[in-house]
Computed example of a mutant assay.
Amino acid sequence: MKNILTTLTYEPKLDGPASGQTVELSRLDQRLTGLMQNEGGAQAAIMVRPGECSVWNGNPRQQPGLTPESCRSLIESIASEGGNRIPVLVRLNPSDPEKPYELLVGSRRRYAVDWLNHNGRPELRLSALVVDLSDEEAFRLADIENRERADITELDRARSYQSAVDRFYGGVQSRMAEALNLSNSQLSRLLALAQLPEEVVDAFSTKDELRVRHSEILTPLLRRPETRAAVIAQARLIGREQQDLAARGERMISPGVVIARLKEAASPRAGESAAKIPILAGETRLGTVKPGKDGELQVDLSIAADTDVEEVLALLRAAIAAARAG
C-alpha cells in the first residue's frame, strides 16, 4: 500500500476558482479503484460501520463542514450502487475499542454512508482498506486527495501545513516542501496565509473567499509595526459590518472591497497618523476615528446630503468599537 505514495505525482493549485464538481476521478481515487479491481487478491477490502471510524486529526478536511447538500451527488451514487465503489483508507486504532479504525482518506464517503444509515439505508457499510502508514505518510496521502477537492479551502489546507511543519518535519520548511513536491516559495505562500490574524480572516464573508493571493498583499502590511495596528483595526470594523449584513440578509462585502479597504487603512493620507481608523462605506471614505489620550476619540466625518444616516451611524459605531479595541 505504501507504493501509492511513490506512484502518484501532482501539481498543486494554490489559487484560482474551485470547480463545482469533480467529473473525473482523482489520481488517488483511480489508484484505489485499481487496487479493488485488479489487485483484490493482494488487498481485500473490509466492511465497517462509519461509527467504528474516528477521523484522523491530521487531515485538513473539517468534518463538521460536510453537509447533505455538499455531498448530494456522492450520497445518491452510493445509494444507487449499494455502497462506496472507491474504498476509504483506515488504519488500526487499538487505543479505542469502540472506534477500532482511524480514517485517513475518505471523509466524504464516510459522511455519505453515515448519512444514509440514518436516512433509510441502515444496511449499508463502508468499504475500507486497512493500511499501515505513519502519521507523516498519512499526511502526504491525505494531502494528495485534498488538493483535488473543491470543499477544502485554501485556508484549511494552509493551516494544516502550518501544523504539519512542526509535527512531521521538525520545523524545517524545506523538508516539508520536498516531501509534498512543493517549491519552497509555494509552501511559504501557503504558510503566510495560515498566519493571517483571525481579525483579517473574519473580515471576509467566508473562509473560501480568502486566498493565497490576498495574503501576498496583506502580509507585508501586517509585518510593518506602523501599519499592522491600522490594518487589524479596519479588519475588525469590516468583520462587524459583515455580521450586520449577514443578519439583515443583505449582500456581503466582496473580497476585492475588503482588500481595498485594508490597503487604504495601511496607507493614510498625507498629514494623517497611521493610528487613525478610516470610516469607509464600501470604497467611499467618510472620515476617520483617532484614539487620543485617556480613552478619548477624535471623530472626523464628512457626508453628503443624501447619505443614509442610519448606515453612517452603524459604520461610526463599528469604527469607535474598533478604535477602543485597538
Rank of each mutant, 00 (worst) to 15 (best):
R49W: 05
E272Y: 08
A150Y: 12
R149V: 04
I279R: 03
G171E: 10
A314G: 10
P94H: 03
K263Q: 15
R269Y: 07
A260G: 15
G249V: 02
E178H: 07
T67D: 01
K207H: 07
E81N: 08
E145S: 15
P94D: 06
A323C: 11
Q186S: 08
L133W: 06
S174A: 10
A42R: 15
A266T: 08
P291L: 07
E137K: 09
V88F: 04
S26C: 01
D96Y: 08
L262H: 09
W115T: 04
A192C: 04
K276S: 14
E198F: 00
R324K: 15
V312M: 12
L104G: 02
L129A: 09
R140Q: 14
S54E: 12
L89P: 01
A158I: 00
Q63D: 11
R248P: 03
Q298G: 15
Q162A: 15
D114E: 13
L92C: 09
E145R: 00
N184V: 04
G239H: 03
E145V: 04
K263P: 07
L35R: 13
G249K: 11
L103T: 09
I277P: 06
L141R: 02
P122N: 00
V299Y: 14
D208P: 00
E145M: 10
R140W: 01
A79T: 05
L8K: 04
I259S: 11
G58R: 01
E272G: 01
H118S: 13
L301M: 11
V130M: 02
D300H: 15
E11Q: 14
T9P: 09
A318N: 15
T6A: 13
G41K: 05
I46M: 01
V299T: 13
P60T: 02
H214T: 05
V113P: 05
E199Q: 06
R72Q: 12
R157Y: 03
G326C: 12
N146H: 10
S215D: 08
T22H: 12
M252N: 13
Q173C: 04
D208S: 12
R27V: 02
R61G: 02
T153W: 04
G271I: 09
P17G: 06
R72T: 01
